[in-house]
Design a protein around this nucleic acid. Structure first.
Lengths: 333, 333
DNA sequence: AGCACCAATGATTGCGCAACCATTTTGACT
DNA sequence: AGTCAAAATGGTTGCGCAATCATTGGTGCT
C-alpha cells in the first residue's frame, strides 16, 4: 500500500465495516471487546492515522482551540499560554496560536485565518478588536473569551483584572510612602499600558496634598535595556526632581534598577522603583522590586474552562471574571 | 442566514459560480479583475470564511506546520518560536504547537496526535525521540527538522549547534582566566544540559595543569531562585574551595549572581559566574555575566526554510546546519 | 418457546471544497 | 469580418469520515 491507509483499509484487514473502525477510534465503549481488539490490532499493524480534515468535515468538530496573543516575546503571555496548554491537555484539543504583534489589523486577519479552521473556541487578548473582527467572532457562533483586561462590552465572555485600578493602587502606595514627585515610565503603549497610565494620573489627581508628577513614554517595545534609558530620560526631563519611577512593566523596572546602580543612586532612598507583572527576577534582585502580581496561568486555565462550560449555551453564558491582583510591596519602594 | 455561509452563498451574492469564488480565495490572478472585485465584496459583506477542513480534504494540503518544544516556560524556546512564526507568516501556514515537558513519551504521543492533522512539515526539539516516534515521523513522508542540537543520525534534517563544544570552550575560558576549581551547576538535566556537563568534564580533563572541579546538579526545573540555592550548595559541598561556577543556563547564573551579592562575595574576584543562552538580563546586571550566545530566532527561521526547500525532495534534502555560538566574555569572569 | 427490548453492527449519505475537464469568452492576428 | 489560441469561467465529482437510520443478534422475562 503506497498511499496513506484509510478507514476502509483498516476495516478490510480487521474484517469489519468502516464505521466500526471509526467507532473504535472515537468511542471504544460502543464496540464489543472482540471487534475492538481486532480493530486495534489492524490499526497498529498498518500504522493507520485518522485523517483529521475528513473527520472535522463530517463531524463538524475540529478539535481545535484558537488563541491570539499580542507577543511571543513578552514572557507575560507565556504564563497565560502555559495555563491554557495545561487546561487543554486533558481535553482532546489542539491549540492554534497566533501572534498579532499588538496590531488590531493583524489580529483581524489572524482571526479570519484561524476561524477558517473552525475552532471550537476562541481566546483573544485584550478588548481592542476591530469591528469587523468582532463581527466575525460573533458570527462564528463559538464561545469567545477576551482575556487580560475587563470590559463592559465583551464580545462574549471575559476574564482579567483592572489594570487601571492596579496602577491606581500602586501609585497610591508610592504617595503613601511619602514620594511626592513620581514618574510613570511606559513603553509600547498598548491598551493595557494606557490603562495603567490613566490609573497613575487619576491617583495623582485624587491625592489630597500637592504633588508633582512626570510621564515618560515611548512606543518602542519594552526591554530591560530600554528601562535604563527611560530612567535616564525621566531624570533628565524632570531636572532631577522625580523621586519615584513607576515602570509599566518589570522589564523596564529591572532595567531601571540596574541603571540606578550604575548611576550610584540609592533605591529606594534617592529614588523608588516599582513595576508591573511581578516577574521572578523582581523578587530576587537587591533591592527587590515592588510590583503588581496577577494569576496569569490561572487566567489561562480558567479561560479554557469558561469556553467549555459555555459550549452551546449562547452568548455570555459565563459572567465576567475578575481575577484580581496584588501589590507586592518590596524594598525598592 | 443562520448557518455558516459557504462557497455557494458567496457565489450567489456575487453572481458567479462557486468554483470562481474558490479561485479568488486561492489564486486571485486566475480570475478577471471584474469578477474578483465582485467576489471580494461579497466575501467581505457576508463575512465568509473558508472551511479549512473541507479545503484540506479536497486539496490534500493542510496548511499546517507541527512544532514540538520541551517547555513553554523556558524563554529560550520562545526565541526559537518567534523565528518560526516570523518565517511562517509569509507562507500560508498555521502552527500547531505542542509542549512535551521534556518527556520523550509525551513527545511521542504529541507526534501521533499532530500527525493526524496531516502537517506539511514537522519541527521537533532535540534528538532524543523514541524509536516509535522516529518511525511515525519517517512514515509520514513529510519533511522533518530536528532543532537545537546536532546529531549524526538525524531523522531527516537537522539544525543547531554543539552544546558540548560550547561548554568545552566556556570551561576552557574559565581555566584560561586562572580559575582552578570550577564547578558545574546544572538543573533539569535534559539532554542538552548533559551535553554541556560532558563538555565541562572533558575540558577539565584536557587541561594540562592540575585542577579541581565540582559538580552540582538537580532534576528540578531551572529558575532564578534555584540558581541561588545551587550556588549555596556548591560552595558548601566544595568546602569553600570552588572559585568559579559555570551555570547550565542564565536563569541559574542570574540567581547565583544575586545570591553572591547577598553573601557578600565579590564577582569575579572571590568567585566567577558564567551561564548559557545569553539572556538580555545577563548583559545588563552588574557585573555583566559571561554567557554562550546562539542565534535562536535565526535557527527557527532557517528550520522553516529548510522544510520548504525540502518539500517533495525526500529525506536529507538539506544538509545539517551548524548555526554556531559565541562565548560572550563579560566582567563576571 | 415466544416475546420484547436493547446492544452491536452495518449501509447510505452528505459535509464543503478543489481537482479535473468542459465550455465560453476574449483578443490577437490575418 | 473570420479564425484560432489562450484565458476565463463553470459543472461534475470525489476526498475520508461520521451522522443517521436500518438491521442483526443477544438477553431477560413470562
Amino acid at each position: 500500500m503506497s498511499r496513506k491507509p484509510n478507514l476502509k483499509d483498516v476495516a478490510k484487514v480487521a474484517g469489519v465495516s468502516a464505521i466500526t473502525v471509526s467507532r473504535v477510534l472515537t468511542d471504544p465503549t460502543k464496540v464489543s471487546d472482540k471487534l475492538r481488539n481486532k480493530v486495534e490490532k489492524a490499526v497498529h499493524e498498518i500504522g493507520y492515522i485518522r485523517n483529521h480534515a475528513a473527520s472535522a468535515l463530517a463531524s463538524k468538530k475540529s478539535g481545535v482551540l484558537a488563541v491570539i496573543i499580542p507577543s511571543l516575546s513578552n514572557i507575560v503571555f507565556n504564563d497565560v499560554l502555559q495555563g491554557i496548554y495545561q487546561a487543554v491537555k486533558a481535553k482532546n484539543l489542539q491549540v492554534l496560536l497566533g501572534d498579532c504583534h499588538y496590531s488590531p489589523l493583524i489580529e483581524e486577519q489572524l482571526i479570519a485565518t484561524l476561524l477558517s479552521q473552525s475552532p471550537e473556541g476562541f481566546i483573544v487578548t485584550g478588548t481592542a478588536q476591530t469591528d469587523y473582527a468582532r463581527k466575525l467572532l460573533l458570527q462564528a457562533d463559538i464561545p469567545v473569551v477576551q482575556i487580560m483586561e475587563l470590559t463592559n462590552q465583551p464580545i462574549d465572555m471575559n476574564i482579567g483584572f483592572s489594570h487601571y485600578q492596579a496602577s491606581y493602587d500602586m501609585t497610591k502606595h508610592l504617595l503613601q510612602q511619602g514620594y511626592r514627585a513620581p514618574a510613570f515610565v511606559g513603553a509600547r503603549m498598548d491598551p493595557r499600558t494606557q490603562q495603567r497610565l490613566a490609573g497613575f494620573k487619576q491617583a495623582i489627581a485624587d491625592w489630597p496634598e500637592p504633588c508633582r508628577s512626570f510621564i515618560q513614554t515611548t512606543v518602542q517595545p519594552s526591554s530591560i535595556k530600554l528601562g535604563g534609558q527611560l530612567l535616564q530620560a525621566v531624570i533628565a526631563e524632570s531636572d532631577n526632581q522625580c523621586d519615584a519611577v513607576f515602570c509599566c512593566n518589570d522589564d523596564l523596572a529591572l532595567g531601571a534598577m540596574f541603571e540606578s546602580k550604575r548611576m550610584n543612586l540609592n533605591v529606594p532612598k534617592d529614588i523608588a522603583i516599582c513595576g508591573f507583572n511581578d516577574l521572578e527576577a523582581s523578587a530576587l534582585v537587591e533591592p527587590a522590586i515592588t510590583s503588581v502580581a496577577s494569576p496569569r496561568a490561572e487566567m489561562g486555565r480558567q479561560a479554557v474552562e469558561m469556553l467549555f462550560s459555555a459550549a452551546g449555551k449562547g452568548r455570555h453564558a459565563v459572567a465576567p471574571v475578575d481575577v484580581g491582583y496584588s501589590i507586592m510591596v518590596r524594598s525598592s519602594t
